[in-house]
């Protein structure tokens, strides 16, 4: 077999607490990201993603403690994104135990940030996060600030730019689909996956297992990220693996 299609649950974290997380298992503290990470570790998730959506500057450091406590008990790859503005921000997360750091708005404003991090810590640890909205047939634009602020930057061009600056992979989120449960924006995912040589993670809009499969077969993604279908117990990671395997895609056995 070849490299497996990765299934990646994503947890939103604010001020060190899970904002919208697993609520179907009996956890002593369902707001603790570490407890939730352990659930996904035991469930056979291929990687885990924390998105730090902490709004206040004062609470920013809390993610470092969350990452350190997670890395002490979960021996799976961990990507952390949200608020990474400098190579030193990335360094702090990596030293705490993150394996990859996702850069978003700061790399839109200054794509050289990617090279700053890649040169110091390697391309393998830099994930370029792209939030895009459709602005016409086959055209997508980069939006920042949670999808509210247009930038005028073409999403596929930005993906190429980030790849040329040294990202190890791209996390492509459709802001049109995020939260809709209507499935990934497949043309967007495919346009970017076909334009770059690095892996693409499809994100935004998963409502069922068929959406995960389509992300790979039609979106050409190497990995599929989802939140609510896992958090609310609608489907397990094993269900996701089984659906991908049934479609003939390589997945982890266990």
């Amino acid at each position: 077999m070849t490299v497996r299609t990765r299934v990646i649950p994503c947890l939103d974290v604010a001020g060190g607490r899970v904002v919208k997380g697993v609520n179907f298992v009996d956890l002593a503290d369902a707001g603790d990201p570490v407890a939730q990470a352990r659930v996904y570790d035991a469930a056979g998730a291929d990687e885990l993603c924390f998105l730090d959506i902490t709004a206040s500057h004062e609470a920013r450091g809390t993610i470092l403690d969350v990452v350190a406590r997670t890395a002490a008990v979960c021996f799976m790859p961990l990507t952390v994104g949200g608020g990474v503005r400098s190579a030193d921000d990335a360094r702090a997360l990596l030293l705490a135990g993150a394996d990859k750091v996702a850069v978003n708005s700061a790399a839109v404003a200054r794509p050289a940030l990617v090279a700053d991090i890649a040169e110091r810590f390697g391309s393998q640890c830099v994930v370029g996060a792209i939030d895009a909205r459709g602005v016409g047939p086959g055209r997508w634009e980069i939006f920042t600030h949670g999808g509210r602020k247009a930038t005028g930057i073409d999403a596929v061009a930005h993906a190429r730019e980030l790849a040329s600056r040294g990202v190890g992979e791209l996390l492509v989120t459709s802001m049109d689909r995020d939260g809709t449960r209507d499935g990934y924006d497949l043309p967007l995912t495919r346009a970017i996956a076909d334009a770059v040589s690095v892996p693409v993670i499809a994100s935004g809009g998963v409502g069922n297992l068929d959406h995960l499969v389509a992300g790979v077969t039609q979106g050409h993604a190497s990995a599929v990220l989802a939140a609510s279908i896992f958090h609310f117990g609608q489907h397990s990671v094993a269900d996701a693996h089984a659906a991908l395997a049934a479609a003939g895609l390589p997945v982890r056995e266990g």
Partner: peptide
Amino acid sequence: ALKVPHMGWND
């Protein structure tokens, strides 16, 4: 069509 980096679980 195979991506580099080689990233993920493999044999």
